[in-house]
Design a protein around this nucleic acid. Structure first.
Lengths: 218, 218
DNA sequence: TAGATTGTTAATCGATTAACAATC
DNA sequence: TAGATTGTTAATCGATTAACAATC
């Protein structure tokens, strides 16, 4: 399913490297080593080197990578140059926030419109992207060959929306509802699970706080 | 750092089980087995059984878990009963969306206020949570013993905001900016990295599409 | 040349899965 | 009892890290 040999983990780290490199801006050195990136991002050197080997073969011993080239190579590997059109289903707060988020353009994602059962919703966020009723979803997706659908509806509607997207020719679904979606095997689902992140965060925090209390008591 | 033996992966799956169990609503059976959960969520049986063993010891052979008990046990393990207060820095669209998202209450997260350099921002989203200027951050956090800070500012300001939060006594940071934050070792950082998710999604998609083209050409 | 850095091969670690015994 | 399900012990798998040879 993936480029042979490229792990999901590597794929998740690449945007991090890119973001770091870009953040250097005017301090950007002509050349940068995997070692330097690893130090800055507190990662293992070998890991960074292996990750970079997937996107570039221009690394030179003693020298490293030409910074600008590496940026271009990561961007092109991640497909940030070719734009993918997408639509959002669910024009609530999260949906609107994502729809109007300018940053996605940088990642090659272009959100064309939102859909909602409540057709009266208007995009008030100072953007001209339309919010359309659900019954226009299919024609819109088919007509514009939309491949990516983003789900930001409440959990209880997520499966129905998912089915509708699949029926409209969407191949990849970015799911913000905290539920497991049942899809045909050829459909790609990426879950953006805030509840999970929050679970990790607060467990770590409570662990830390209770450790402290044990120390105080003991 | 974690409860001895509990993996980050397990922690991330627990909210999924919970969400599935709750989604059963009136169809909810009195008893449910790890097997049934695994089937529904397309996970491995042993994995689910091991995960559940962390939060419950009320599973009975041939019978499974009393569904309501299991729900309570997961909720209490994840700390959904005790509320953690939090603040958001960055009252842009994403910040406002998160601030006004009602769903976090269920997860034991209570966002009290947002902070922004632009003190003129008003919370227009039909909620009475205040948006306050950055110079009030420290007193607010110290006074209310805030432990969790959420960062939704543009990348270039994220490190400064992070430093300010750490200086205000915050112990855990939920970071929505796609950058690596440098923090003292005692601070917990959870990155919510949409760029990474998107990278995985579009790589899978492009892989799939190019596989198809190769088939067509060949 | 010497040394920093690359890329690769081997070892380690952790998480998942398989096999199985215990039990209601 | 028989069989479904639990929980545990062992095997497998994949990702990370360590060791090292190649090179500019």
């Amino acid at each position: 399913m993936l480029t042979p040999g490229i792990s999901k983990q590597t794929l998740r780290r690449l945007p991090f490297y890119l973001s770091y490199l870009k953040s250097l801006r005017k301090d950007m050195p002509d050349f940068i080593s995997a070692t330097a990136i690893a130090d800055a991002l507190k990662l293992n050197q070998v890991q960074v080197r292996k990750d970079l080997a997937f996107v570039s073969s221009s690394g030179r011993p003693k020298v490293g990578y030409r910074t600008q080239d590496l940026i271009s190579e990561i961007e092109s590997f991640l497909g940030y140059n070719e734009t993918d059109n997408a639509i959002i289903v669910g024009a609530g707060r999260l949906g609107k926030a994502l729809m109007n988020y300018e940053g996605f353009k940088e990642y090659g994602l272009n959100i064309l419109a939102a859909f909602d059962t409540n057709a009266d919703l208007v995009n008030t966020e100072g953007s001209d992207k339309p919010i359309m009723p659900m019954n226009k979803l299919r024609d819109f997706c088919v007509g514009l060959k939309i491949r990516i659908g983003i789900i930001t509806v409440p959990s209880e509607y997520a499966q129905d929306v998912c089915d509708a997207l699949v029926g409209s020719g969407v191949l990849a679904i970015w799911n913000f509802a905290p539920v497991h979606l049942r899809v045909p095997e050829y459909i790609i689902v990426q879950n953006e699970n805030m509840a999970s992140s929050l679970a990790v965060l607060s467990n770590h925090l409570n662990q830390k706080l209770s450790d402290k209390n044990i120390l105080k008591v003991g």
